[in-house]
Design a protein around this nucleic acid. Structure first.
Lengths: 118, 118
DNA sequence: CCGCATCCCCAAGGATACTG
DNA sequence: CAGTATCCTTGGGGATGCGG
């Protein structure tokens, strides 16, 4: 009979940073982009070709987000038809561990659920 | 076998399990629910009270998802007004590490970005 | 108490066309 | 080549009410 037991604000505290992380990795394209860049620096068009199904709009928007969050660095080369290169920052690479964990867990899970035809 | 040079199918391979994982942790409520249950078994209404802002519909739906994925166990007690208890399965608890990583990274990120008023 | 059904809204994302 | 602008679709999720 506790009037308002806000012990669960503790949950919230635990949750916030997790949501932050998911906010960055979430959405449909953030991960594909980050992972694509894991394989080396890329130019815009190049990425669009590699990331299956992404539109220029989305790629542009997501890259901007990632840039703001300092996960990706954008470099403009003053060539004739201007070329732009994207690369993961050191900070962006720090996601490697998180992604690795997600991947490991996902693999395990896939086995488990697929075996009983979800 | 591959007529088109899909070297980036390697990315895809790396990506799939990650997306699987995000599929489960993604959405607005999966994490709040899992984390709430981390703090102990809960009944439906109880969870609804603890997880700020969630509707019965969403709670119900998400719990079902989690149950299908074997992360949560649902137990119905044959009391007069039926009561239902939810708990994390061992498997569900295996997410702890992943969540921990997300949380760690999120904390770090928050510091970094908040310091320059995102 | 538990939770589904219905209706509704909005933001994420897609298609297409256009500029520097 | 590297994007931007515009319009449109979709489905995730909210509000409310009912049924077991």
């Amino acid at each position: 009979m506790t009037p308002t037991p806000k012990d669960h604000s503790e949950c919230t505290r635990n949750l916030l940073p997790v949501k932050d992380a998911l906010d960055i990795l979430g959405g449909k394209w953030k991960l594909p982009i980050i992972i694509a860049l894991t394989f080396g620096n890329k130019r815009f068009k190049e990425m669009q070709r590699e990331i299956n199904g992404i539109t220029a709009k989305m790629l542009s928007k997501e890259l901007k987000d990632l840039e703001v969050n300092q996960l990706v660095k954008r470099t403009v080369y003053d060539t004739v038809p201007v070329s732009v290169e994207y690369e993961l920052t050191t900070y962006g690479k720090s996601l490697h561990k998180v992604i690795g964990e997600l991947r490991t867990w996902g693999l395990q899970h896939r086995k488990k659920v697929l075996s009983k035809a979800e």
